[in-house]
Amino acid sequence: MKHQMIRGMALVAVLGASTPLWAQYEGPGSETIKTVEEAKKASDDAEVVLTGHIIRQINHEDYLFRDATGEINVEIDGDEWGAIREPVTPEMTVRISGEVDYHQTEPTDIDARQVEIIETAYRPAMTGLEKG
């Protein structure tokens, strides 16, 4: 009896480890918000994946984000910067994944879960040979 219980627990552990950690519904009604304009109209906790630029820091964890459709405040906690080890500038294109944070008395903003650098603006290296 004891051996059967141990085998059962081992089976549950193996099956649990093989299950995707972020499994979620995908289908009608589960569309991810992709623009600032859509995010401003979305309901609280709607999933967002925005691509654009962080154009300035407002305070410790709040930033102003801009894409082609508008601007919105984004809260980025320290651990949401992930593996980024370089300063993020307004010229860099970033992808922010998170959710809409709707407020009745304040403008809607985004609570970021992850920030990724998509593209860094090209800047020629200074070699000392430039004429100018």
Rank of each mutant, 00 (worst) to 15 (best):
M1F: 14
M1W: 15
K2A: 10
Q4V: 11
M5R: 15
M5W: 11
I6Q: 15
G8S: 13
M9D: 10
M9A: 14
A10D: 11
A10V: 11
L11F: 14
L11Y: 15
V12S: 12
V12M: 15
V12N: 08
V12H: 00
A13T: 11
A13R: 05
V14F: 15
A17C: 08
L21T: 12
L21D: 10
W22P: 02
Q24A: 15
E26I: 12
P28Q: 08
P28M: 09
S30C: 04
S30I: 06
E31P: 00
I33K: 00
T35D: 08
E38P: 05
K41R: 09
A42G: 02
A42L: 07
A42D: 04
S43T: 12
S43Y: 07
S43M: 09
V48S: 08
V48K: 03
L50M: 03
L50T: 04
T51A: 07
G52M: 04
G52S: 07
G52W: 15
G52C: 02
H53S: 11
H53L: 01
I54R: 00
I54H: 00
I54Y: 00
I55L: 10
R56K: 14
R56I: 05
R56A: 10
I58W: 05
H60Y: 10
H60N: 12
E61H: 10
E61A: 13
E61F: 08
E61D: 14
D62N: 10
R66N: 02
R66D: 02
D67F: 06
D67T: 03
A68L: 11
G70K: 01
G70I: 02
E71G: 03
E71Y: 03
I72A: 02
N73I: 06
N73C: 07
V74S: 04
E75T: 03
I76P: 03
D77R: 03
D79W: 05
D79G: 05
E80W: 00
G82R: 06
G82F: 00
I84G: 06
R85W: 01
R85G: 12
E86H: 13
P87Q: 12
P87M: 13
V88L: 02
T89N: 10
E91F: 08
M92T: 00
T93H: 06
V94W: 01
V94K: 01
R95Q: 14
R95E: 13
R95H: 05
I96Y: 05
I96W: 04
S97E: 15
S97V: 09
S97N: 10
G98E: 09
E99D: 06
V100A: 03
V100I: 08
D101H: 08
Y102G: 13
H103L: 07
Q104F: 14
Q104Y: 12
Q104H: 11
Q104D: 13
T105C: 00
T105L: 07
T105F: 06
E106G: 03
P107M: 05
T108V: 06
T108A: 09
D109Q: 05
I110D: 03
D111L: 01
R113G: 13
R113T: 06
I117C: 09
I118V: 14
I118P: 10
E119Y: 14
T120R: 15
T120M: 15
A121G: 10
Y122G: 02
Y122I: 05
Y122E: 13
Y122M: 06
Y122K: 02
R123C: 09
R123K: 12
A125E: 15
T127D: 04
G128C: 11
G128E: 14
L129T: 11
K131Y: 08
G132P: 08
G132M: 12
